[in-house]
Simulated scan of single mutants.
Amino acid sequence: SNMVDNQTAVLSQLYNRRESVSGVSIDEEVTNLLKFQRSYEANSRVINTINEMLDTLINRTGV
């Protein structure tokens, strides 16, 4: 009985150690998600500005 309890405890510790190394950090994932979202928004503003510039050049400077 004691051996089974000890084996269970060792197995649980090994599992927890493996998960701590290979597990996913929710805080890190949320930080990355926000970083990528801000990058997407900035790129969207750049593309919108270029679109407006091209519209001005093509449609409003005509002869």
Rank of each mutant, 00 (worst) to 15 (best):
A9V: 04
A9I: 01
A9Q: 14
A9S: 11
A9R: 10
A9P: 00
V10E: 09
V10L: 15
L11S: 11
L11C: 07
L11Y: 13
L11I: 11
S12V: 03
S12Y: 06
S12M: 06
Q13M: 01
Q13F: 06
L14W: 08
L14I: 09
L14M: 14
Y15M: 07
Y15E: 15
Y15S: 08
Y15G: 04
N16P: 00
N16W: 05
N16Q: 13
N16F: 09
R17V: 04
R17T: 12
R17K: 09
E19T: 10
S22I: 06
G23W: 04
G23E: 05
V24D: 08
S25C: 11
S25P: 09
I26Q: 04
I26M: 07
D27G: 11
V30A: 12
V30L: 15
T31D: 12
T31L: 12
T31I: 14
T31V: 14
N32S: 14
N32G: 10
L33R: 10
L33M: 13
L33S: 15
L34A: 09
L34P: 01
F36T: 10
F36Y: 12
Q37K: 13
R38H: 10
R38K: 15
R38A: 15
S39M: 13
S39A: 13
E41L: 04
A42L: 10
N43S: 13
N43C: 09
N43Y: 04
S44Q: 12
S44M: 09
R45V: 13
V46H: 05
V46A: 02
V46D: 15
I47S: 09
I47K: 04
I47H: 03
N48Q: 13
N48I: 03
T49L: 08
T49F: 06
I50A: 11
I50D: 10
N51M: 05
N51R: 14
E52H: 05
M53G: 07
L54C: 08
L54P: 00
D55F: 05
D55A: 01
D55W: 02
T56I: 09
L57Y: 05
L57H: 06
L57K: 05
I58F: 14
I58C: 03
N59G: 00
N59D: 02
R60Q: 05
G62H: 01
G62Y: 00
G62K: 00
